[in-house]
Design a protein around this nucleic acid. Structure first.
Lengths: 333, 333
DNA sequence: TTGTAGGCGTTATCAG
DNA sequence: CTGATAACGCCTACAA
């Protein structure tokens, strides 16, 4: 029922090897022979078996991509990945880690030899033993929106960007500035983000102190933002400006603020992060992160690493810039 | 360098077949023997090769999913798919069709035997010859948000939902109602959507006529909505209510309307579709589509179809309901 | 330039 | 219950 390369070879009246070479467009086959093989394949409706191919070549032509969950932010990264892969014959299998319990299992599963030719971790920090195993079996991996000493990582320069944001707020006259950050890796260890470092540095430079409860890590998304706002609003001295780790968080803050009768930006200045499509339409002051480039570059680096045996890990950081729109203004308190 | 099942067998002092059976947790292996094999595998750090496994079993444990592009809507479907797959060991390779030219190529590639065990088309209508090939080689496929006579398809009941929307608008007093629809399959043939049919039926029932230019197909997203609004606004008699094919389109319409100085809902009522997370926060009147269920059910059906040889195609339609919020009101013109 | 003989790691078959 | 042995479909040396 299935047409194999053997059938094609017989039909074309050539040997197995010749058929294989002809079909693979390899050099070293006479033009007429090749034409004969191709014609035979066409006639028989031959299609080579991808698994057999992968099995034999010991290469799957597949990239494994691990993201925390399907959100707008990761979609944009995936688009970048895809554009990098557009002219290759690589496929992507995408895994998400929706539940914390699944983290171990998913991560372990993806690092089996033969599953894929390379792994792309997005906003996921692989534990050290995993990295060890990856390195041990020579499976290339790159980190997007994360960092690991032994893996080439690529991320936005959150630290610089956040410093620019703080400076902007200070120039507007704010003294009470809070940061509602998102977790670097929602399912991993709580490491301080670049945003947090930038925030602290810039606040120190401005001679401002960070009040208790002004730095919090909240979940991605509208809901997280809303909860963050409520915690901030309940403080004895609520901030006059709030920086966030994602545009959707910022929007959640704004929504919740409005529900509580606060006006934005009069009563509260809000800054997002990433500059998703919606941000422009809603006039959100935010940080423009080249999200798509993150994905494209990351995939490109991974592809490159698959070629060589052992490239030294690189650390790439893409500039992010402040985009001033309408959700920030001078404080009125 | 790689530990094969052969090594395990030798280490455990058993035959190849026994080792295979023990590792696969198949019955018919003495408990002590199994323990010995498992221990040997553990000791050697054996991990079975997924490709070799797939090659031998002629089953990849992989589902191929084809979506037009990465957007919020498709992400939500993907989440549903994922939840259906959570307790299986199925992986998902996702393909998008960003460019129209790629359509043919991508679709052809996904329908090779051995690539996957089943295909899930989302908002993509496979051409007849493709369906023929799929059926011919016994590769199960199901359609989400689409319909094909020979494939089991699952979709929201857009027609009923849109009729409810029209009735709602009519009750509010609207006579000039327009529909900015989205394409069923952005890269495929232009078939009239269920929305369009429901729109026409309900308008006829209400004794209203549909003016020239009141039904348009516009791209997904904010930009499409904005352009749609502009075309509608340029009409000699612009509508007082606009129904759309997606929430993001509706938001695009609202943004553009505001830019032109129209107030929503006073000057223009707007209805979205899907009820994405944002819709609630922005007070958008919309149609709630069980998007996640679409994905979950679709994946479940596909999984079921993989078991049997040839199940008859089913046609499932999930109810969608009107959600009244703040972007619809009585007309003031 | 072409044909042939292994080998990739598993599972399946069929005697013992 | 166990152990050889034969596929699975393709690629790749190596020999002709």
């Amino acid at each position: 029922v299935v047409v194999t390369i053997r059938d094609v070879a017989r039909e074309a009246g050539v040997g197995l090897g010749t058929a294989s070479r002809a079909l693979a467009h390899e050099p070293g086959v006479a033009a007429t022979t090749r034409a004969r093989v191709l014609a035979a394949a066409e006639r028989l409706g031959y299609r080579r078996s991808p698994i057999a191919h992968a099995f034999s070549r010991r290469r799957t032509n597949t990239l494994e991509i691990i993201v925390p969950r399907f959100t707008r932010f990761y979609m944009e990264i995936l688009r970048g990945v895809e554009s990098a892969l557009a002219d290759t014959d690589y496929s992507v299998v995408i895994r998400t880690i929706e539940r914390r319990e699944a983290r171990e299992r998913v991560l372990a599963a993806c690092c089996t030899r033969g599953r894929s030719d390379g792994v792309l971790f997005i906003s996921i920090l692989p534990p050290d033993d995993l990295v060890e195993r990856l390195l041990g079996m020579g499976l290339p991996a790159v980190l997007i929106d994360g960092e690991h000493p032994q893996l080439t990582s690529i991320r936005a320069d959150d630290e610089q960007a956040e410093m620019a944001v703080v400076r902007h707020c200070v120039e507007l006259g704010h003294h009470q500035i809070a940061l509602l950050d998102r977790a670097e890796d929602p399912f991993g260890p709580a490491v301080p983000s670049g945003r947090q470092r930038g925030f602290e540095r810039a606040m120190a430079e401005a001679g401002l102190e960070i009040s208790d409860g002004y730095v919090q890590v909240i979940p991605f998304g509208l809901e997280g933002g809303a909860r963050g706002f409520e915690r901030l609003a309940a403080l004895p001295e609520p901030p006059t400006a709030v920086l966030t780790g994602a545009d959707m968080q910022a929007m959640g803050v704004i929504e919740a603020a409005r529900r509580h009768g606060w006006k934005v930006p009069e009563d509260l200045s809000v800054v997002g992060c990433h500059d998703i499509e919606l941000a422009e339409h809603l006039g959100l002051t935010t940080v423009r992160v080249p999200v798509r480039d993150l994905g494209q570059l990351g995939a490109g680096l991974l592809l490159a690493a698959i070629g060589q045996s052992a490239a030294p890990p690189q650390r790439i950081s893409l500039p992010a810039e402040l985009v001033v729109r309408a959700t920030c203004g001078p404080p009125t308190r």
